[in-house]
Design a protein around this nucleic acid. Structure first.
Lengths: 211, 211
DNA sequence: ATTCTAAGTAGTCACTGTCAACATTTATGT
DNA sequence: ACATAAATGTTGACAGTGACTACTTAGAAT
């Protein structure tokens, strides 16, 4: 249960990889027990270093949380891009479904990151610039796909931000509910979640496609 | 900023209303600073009692959180019911929009409750029975409306749970994003949020209505 | 009026975030 | 090569927090 996060050299004084190891440990603590389960000391212990070592890499706890959030956004972006890449179809509906599958997959497989990003743990108003950039890039993937759909005439004429928000909301809501296990367990299986995501996105797409 | 929560008698030894006062204080702490900002001691201070007084009313911090969650579900249910009640139309699309407006209104005006319910703060697996009941009742409002729509033929033939989940996901996602201020500020205004909710639900309804 | 009980207080312990002082390893300049 | 600086990690300390126990007080019951 309490697997150590390996340090590079066998048992040297220096860890060699402490920063990423702390992030990884933090994510695990988050995923296992929610926001209150995340402590710098516990993360340090998981990484196999002393309780004050984290301060060589993070100014304070908030900085660690921000780093987790940033990694989360990058992960989210890459999950969406990966699904888009494996989507052979050029149809917008299929591409939107792929995007959503990537998003939901991220939510289910990285609940720790998700909680940090959307659980009120970070103060978005005073977040570092790099975090906002990572966030914008994730939204950009969605926004870009919607714009493609508008350009190709597959989407009905409407405010692109409204269309994007509709997809985002649906997908985000489903992802959150799955990650929080607010839905019946069978639905939380990977395959079931994937199928459900495609079904729900199809519902929405029918509503916003050009007729 | 730190308004005291009033006690019944002027300055008596007994508070008289400590339990609800602590819940109220907890909600405020949650809403202001996220899950890590909630502490029993801070709540006690807001209520104007000593640090151990809460233990006369709550077994531990988790019990306070559970009480907040339960109140949250009841609030959510009543917000949805209230909007449904003021909805004159019998059209399913209008009723679903009203439901969503109630849900989103709850999210925006009670972010503290929302975070407790859906922020991984409580362990849903070992939550008290009353909490599950309150949760089921909230879902029941949505589920009931969907069933009405199926019965009246306004909804296309599909699994009612899938249809309900589509509405729930969209609404929940929008509510979460608004509550977390992940969307541009103008959208977080009450009127703007209401309009956006109606727009997005209309998108979805077009997709799941019978044609 | 006396007594009983619910409600609040004080004190304590373990854990957490944070900082400062010290130690060790690695990198750098000559 | 060697001395020295910078980076990284450790130890120890302090205040704030959750949680528990023992004590005190207000208010109701008899």
């Amino acid at each position: 249960m309490a697997t150590r996060i390996p340090r590079k050299p066998a048992d040297s004084y220096q860890h060699g990889n402490l920063r990423p190891a702390l992030i990884q440990a933090g994510v695990r603590l988050l995923a296992e027990g929610g926001p209150q389960n995340l402590s710098l000391r516990a993360a340090a212990q998981l990484a196999g270093v002393s309780h004050a070592a984290p301060y060589r890499h993070f100014a304070d706890k908030e900085a660690l949380v921000a780093a987790i959030a940033e990694e989360g956004f990058r992960l989210l972006t890459s999950c969406m891009r990966a699904e888009l890449a494996t989507c052979a179809s050029k149809r917008l509906a299929d591409r939107m479904a792929a995007l959503a599958v990537g998003y939901v997959g991220f939510a289910v497989e990285h609940p720790g990151h998700l909680r940090v990003i959307f659980g009120g743990v970070i103060d978005k108003l005073q977040a570092p610039e790099s975090l906002k950039a990572a966030s914008d890039e994730a939204y950009g993937v969605l926004r870009g796909t919607v714009e493609d759909g508008l350009a190709s005439g597959e989407l009905r004429h409407a405010d692109p931000d409204e269309l994007a928000l509709a997809c985002w909301s649906l997908t985000h809501g489903l992802g959150m509910l799955l990650a929080e296990k607010a839905l019946p367990p069978p639905l939380c299986e990977r395959a079931a979640a994937r199928a459900m995501t495609q079904t729900l996105v199809a519902f929405l797409m029918t509503g916003i496609e050009r007729r």
